[in-house]
Every structure is written in C-alpha cells, then in structure tokens.
Design a protein around this nucleic acid. Structure first.
Lengths: 193, 193
DNA sequence: TGGTTTCGCTACCTCAGGTATCGATACCTA
DNA sequence: TAGGTATCGATACCTGAGGTAGCGAAACCA
C-alpha cells in the first residue's frame, strides 16, 4: 500500500485550520455584542474571512453555534475513581463553569432560543450536542435515558434561565444549591421515580 | 359631584375590548405555526385587525407576548389553608400546566429566547412577568428573594428546556419528579443555603 | 352635529439569514 | 515546473420580519 489512505484528505486545496479561529471569533463576537447582533457577517469579519466561507462550512448560523459549543465543551470530563455523587456533582459544576465562560452562555441561550421555532435546528441541537453527552452520562451514571434527560433538563434549563433573565451566569453559591438539591434525588438508595 | 371621574375614560373613541381577542389570536397563531413564523402581521390578521393597530397598543412583539402570557397565567393561585409543601407543589404544577396549554409554552420559550440578546425585552420580561410572581411567592412562602429566584430558575428553566428541546410540554410523571426533587430542598426543617 | 380619538390600509425602511456568481489563490500531483 | 482541482474572498442579490409614517375613514362623546 504505497498510496495514501483513500478518505485521508480530498484532493485540491485543503481546508486550512480555520475552524478554530472561527470558533474563537464567534465566542468573542457573541460575548462583545450579544447573540442577536453577532451576525454571521460580523463573525466572519472578526475571523478575517468572508461570510460566504462560513456558509460553505456550516449550513446555518445555528449549526455554526452548535459546533462552536461542542468545541467549547469538549468531551465529558470523567475522573476515574469517582463515585456517582462525585460524578454528578462534577458534571453539574463543569456545565455551569463552561456556560459561565465568556460568550458560551450567550451562544447557548441564543441558539437554544432559535431552536424553539426551528425544528431543523432543534434536530441539530438534540442530535449533535445533547445526545453525545446524554449517552455518556447514561453510561457513566448507569441511569435510564429518561432520567438522564430529566437531569439535563434541570441542570441546563436552570443555568440558561438564570443566564437569560439576568444576563449573568449563575454564581457559585447557587450552583452549590443546585447540586445540593439534585444529589439526594438521584442517590442510589433513595426512593426514585 | 355630577361629573364623571376624571381619569375614568378618555374622550373620543374608546379602545374596544380587542386585547382579549388579540391574546387569543396570538396563542392560536403561535400554537399553529410556531413562534418565529407567528409574525405580528399574521397575528394581526388572525385577530382581524391591522398590524399598525398592534404596534399602537404594544411597543414590540415581545411586549405583546409578555402581556399575552400575563393574561394566560393570571394571578398566582393561592389556596387558603395550604401548608408550605402544598403551596410549592401546587405552584409547580400550575406553572407546568399553564406552560402546557396550547401556544403558551411556545410563546414563553420564544419570548424568553428573544430576550437573551435584547436587554430592553429582558427588562420587560423581568419586571412585568417575573417580578409580580416572585413577590407573591416571597410573601406566600416566606422566603428571601434569592431563594425564590432560584426556585423560579429551576421550575421555569426545566420546563422551558424540555419544551425547547422536544417541542412538547413535560409529561406529568416528570413534573412529579420535579416536585419530589424540589420539596425536600425547600423544606423548613432541612439544612439550607 | 362637530370634535376627538382610534382604526385600517398602504407604503416604506432597516437589517439579518441565506444564495449565487466569478475571479483569485493555494494546494497536490504529474 | 506546469496544470488541474478545490477552496477562498468579494460582491450582489433575494426573502422575510420587525418596526415606522401618513392619511382617510369610522366610531364614540358631548
């Protein structure tokens, strides 16, 4: 096999490593001027590329934001040797901390809002963003799908509601309260649904 | 005093009882075609009035939706003789049931989404919609402001997240789980923040 | 009956998402 | 080194929604 692997890189000009720069430009722009005013044209300008280039790489603004969020969150951080309670607690704090990073919370709340009346975007959000973390949590916590979905609804919903109503991420004391409220409900030895 | 009270009704053509019809048309339109496609022009057409009439009565689409939600929710239902747990439980179920009414959840999620990147609308949402219920709850539950705000974040955030991600209101079984999770945390005899 | 106010209609403006085209440019391969 | 290929940048354009302005008509009150 002297040939390069078939699906390695398509011929022609390779896509430069621009995605990372676009993600950075997206979060910066959203953080600076808010989600609605962060138009694709402005994001492209901040990244030093053309608007048409953005639409060549992502089918819509929502898809760009979702990929941007995937990049910001990265894989679910799983510490070895942690019990269920520690795992849930660290997961909640990880989500809260990431949403608190500049631009991330605004972008998340914004794309979530758009998805409310855009079924196609809702599909993207559900499939590309929520499902991977949901599956990882089902596995890590050994919980059925509906309980993990409920877990995500409570954590993400609460954090986004605070972000949306106040414009600021939830403070640590309230994240502590969220953890304190949720852990007993999901404890293995407690009466559950 | 044979004169009518001064601020009773201004002279000229009185505003007919159109608000209620507009609210109905708004919820119907949002329920039928979703929040984003429910343009002011379509809502006005459904109500049988002109778009300019809507903008004479409400300064923006968001303000219309907020008033519409206020009309849909009405005053916080307070049963006499209920203890704290019953009060919290019935409040959670009342919010869930109202959000589950046709159009209400979509309208709520939609206007909330718009508010994320519109500080003026966020102010309207916070002042006209959240504050009255927050104050009523502070009084009824005898809780400080920050804990009632946390309560609202969890309840409304969770319900809207489910609505936004699935397009359907939360089923009763999950509302039950929400109540079961929250009551112990807010119980008077438990360790609290 | 006349004054006051609101209504309906229409035309218009701004701006954002998204599409199409075309010449320029960078990469890969022969 | 030369040529083919695919991407990029720039620009112009379309659609649709929020919101504004102006004017004549209709309804209400005195």
């Amino acid at each position: 096999m002297t040939r390069t692997p078939p699906p390695a890189r398509p011929p022609g000009r390779p896509r430069a490593g621009l995605d990372a720069e676009v993600f950075t430009a997206t979060l910066n722009t959203v953080h600076d001027i808010g989600y609605a005013r962060a138009t694709v044209e402005r994001i492209a300008a901040a990244a030093g590329i053309a608007k048409s280039t953005v639409y060549r790489r992502w089918p819509s603004k929502g898809a760009l934001i979702v990929d941007c969020l995937l990049d910001a969150f990265g894989p679910l951080p799983l510490k070895g040797g942690a019990d269920r309670a520690e795992l849930m607690s660290s997961t909640i704090r990880w989500i809260a901390a990431t949403i608190g990073e500049p631009g991330v919370g605004d972008a998340f709340a914004g794309v979530f809002s758009d998805a409310v009346s855009d079924p196609a975007l809702r599909e993207i959000l559900s499939t590309r963003l929520q499902d991977p973390y949901r599956l990882a949590l089902q596995d890590a916590l050994d919980e059925p799908e509906h309980r993990v979905l409920f877990f995500i609804d409570v954590v993400v919903g609460t954090l986004l509601h605070r972000m949306g109503m106040t414009g600021e991420p939830m403070v640590d004391a309230d994240v502590d309260a969220l953890v304190a409220m949720m852990l007993p409900h999901f404890a293995r030895d407690a009466g559950l649904t």
